[in-house]
Amino acid sequence: MVSSKVAAAKPDSSKKLRPSKVKSLAKYEAKKKARAAGTLKKKPKQNLLSGTATWKVVYKSGTWRFVHRPTENKLKAKAKAEGKPTNETRKFKKSIVVKPIKGEKNGETREVHTVKRKAYYPTLKTPKKHRARGLFKNHKRNIRPTLTPGTIVILLTGVHKGKRAVLLKTLDTGLLLITGPFILNAIPMRRVHQGHVIATKTKLDISSVKIPEEIDDKYFKRTLLKKKPKKNESKSLFVQKPKTYRPTEKRKSDQKLVDAQVLDVIKKHKDKKSFFLYLSSMFGLRNNQYPHRMQF
């Protein structure tokens, strides 16, 4: 191990070098000497349209070619005008090579793929294509049939867990839009995942409630509280209070608008008084109550 390491650090002169390596080393040395003497000739930059440019330059690599697509087109046009053949055809590697197979009962030849394919098995002619998953926005949303607009839901997680809220609608991301209403139990309009909610049998007819159209998933997108300090700004001497979330005026007004309508619906309920108390109270389990045996 040690000897090999040493060998790697200092090339052994006694060791035979490959001829190509010797050549490149000599070139390197010559260049070094020329630079020291100040006689190094700088290679003129190739102007792709000067006429000295060759197709080889353009086809240096896939990306190179892509970047120089306009140049390539111009060259093509120039070549066409001059009546020269465009060196356009590239050689592609063959994907399948027929190889002779020795042995008596081996069918003599066999088709061999030069590039190994994904999910390749020798017996498979065409590898199975896996279906692409697609974008999240195109996913199919499955929302429980019990979760219809107007359903009273019991929240199971988060800051509002144990509270009861009104389901307003389901959003494009598959999340539920709910509201307390805010006066009753301090739940603002917010999004919840259906898995974090128990749907109850109790439903309100909120068909008359009009929810502003701009209330969608984007509306609830979080904004950064902290901004990076600018370079020019000097740090203040005093300890600054950390910024906390404050709802915008727009959100407050929207909340009032929707809640007023929902409260109107509740007022029309025949058990109005109980309903107000119901929504403002918390859900809990007592002795001998098991959620899996209960109806909601």
Binding site: I152, I198, T200, S274, L277
Partner: peptide, 14 residues
């Protein structure tokens, strides 16, 4: 009693 929903249970409690 077993078939009561959440709201009905709440009313019963009250």
């Amino acid at each position: 009693r077993a078939s009561l929903g959440d709201f009905e249970r709440f009313k019963l409690k009250r």
